[in-house]
Design a protein around this nucleic acid. Structure first.
Lengths: 233, 233
DNA sequence: TCTCAATTGTGTAATTTTTACACCATTATT
DNA sequence: AATAATGGTGTAAAAATTACACAATTGAGA
């Protein structure tokens, strides 16, 4: 059963704050809108939720259509439902953030309602369409808070990375300088970083060791620490 | 403009997990449903969001109608949107938790669709209507996680309380025993507990000192520690 | 009024975690 | 061979957390 008419009097949508990390900078993926309202503005990728899909599913679809990627780290973080947040009617939107590895080769498909999709540094964002600036800020704050108790950052790095890259990523998200020795000590103490027999290439200085995440160990440590409490009904 | 017809093909609702603390037990406020679906089942208080109200506003209204209280500590914690979560159509629901002081005197108004409202211990909840058991569990987990980094528990206690009561409340939420001396040391170190010149009455043992929260000091300590990051756009 | 039962209120030492801090090593480039 | 740039490492001080036991107070009841 295909939908023809969007019920603007009462509908729900998904908006995604998609984080990536590139050249030492934290970025988000934005689209440039083709039409009114907010023609030519930058906006968060999003769509109306279809009748046959759950909201989680819808968020995954939006991400897949845009990036071709599935099974990303995604998290619902807030729902925005002010009466006038959307000029075309009463639409509440469920916001998710996602963490993805930026890959310059990958083609982004902005979809029918956008001219293009682009990565934009979080540090000098223009005003976004609708209430998307607020949504972004909320999502960024949630990500930051989350990172301070769960080391999810590796989702943003390439498979092999140096400790300096990891530290730069933390610094970009937490927005503060960290001490190199203490940072390394801490990260290595978790035990889910695996040192590789490989070094950085093509750098004109001492090459750093490469590491990768051991997902198995990571899960063991962090799943029961954060999931639904086992002792409760 | 009054609504006559509820658009069940696509609507949103609010559900509230309302926590209270009484007789050393953590409780939530439930309603007993009058009609189908889920006639006679216990459910979380909730309602459809009206066209003219924001979701926050809607949550506040639901709480006010039920308890007569305003300005409660409320927090949106998750939105549930599985396709088949509601037997009567596609309804996604935004869930809030609230913390309130149980007052046996206060009359609860269950509303038109419920037979009654009652406080129920969180420890032996029956299966709830719809997906409300899942909503409750998620809310409880969020509350627990929040409490471990922000001492919000005082919202659940009477104005004057003993440190033992406070500890019991923490134990009920975190679901584990705490060390009395360490607990007191920690709580008092925050500096927002004010010792009163008053003691417990009507107990057949050594009466404990009463304390109250100093909201002013509390806010100073915890507002900038958790709010939106000041350094970011 | 004495005793009992129940609960309050208190401090210290050991352990763990966090913080602060500086220099030599390695590599590519010239 | 010197230089420029970054990688990689350890220790000591401070702070936070944990573990742990007993005397003091009160009302109830004999």
């Amino acid at each position: 059963m295909e939908e023809k008419l969007v019920k603007f009097e009462s509908a729900f949508s998904i908006d995604c704050v998609i984080f990536g990390f590139e050249a030492g900078e934290l970025k988000i993926l934005l689209i440039e809108r083709k039409d009114n309202p907010f023609k030519d503005w930058l906006a968060l990728p999003g769509d109306l939720v279809k009748n046959h899909e759950g909201i989680e599913e819808s968020a995954e679809r939006i991400l897949y259509e845009l990036t071709g990627l599935r099974d990303l780290h995604m998290e619902q973080f807030h729902t925005f439902g002010d009466v006038n947040r959307h000029p075309r009617g009463r639409i509440i939107t469920v916001a998710y953030y996602a963490l993805i590895r930026i890959d310059g080769q990958r083609e982004l498909k902005p979809g029918n309602f956008a001219k293009k999709a682009l990565w934009h540094s979080v540090n000098d964002l223009p005003k976004l369409a609708y209430d998307h600036t607020e949504i972004f800020k909320t999502g960024f704050t949630k990500l930051r808070r989350r990172l301070s108790y769960q080391p999810i950052a590796y989702e943003l790095l390439p498979e092999k990375f140096t400790l300096t890259q990891l530290q730069q990523l933390y610094e970009a998200i937490l927005n503060k300088k960290l001490d190199k020795r203490n940072f390394r000590k801490k990260m290595l103490s978790y035990g889910f970083l695996k040192e590789l027999d490989e070094k950085q290439k093509n750098v004109s200085f001492r090459a750093a060791k490469l590491y990768k995440f051991d997902r198995r160990k990571y899960s063991k440590i962090f799943q029961n620490e954060l999931g639904v409490d086992i002792d409760n009904p």
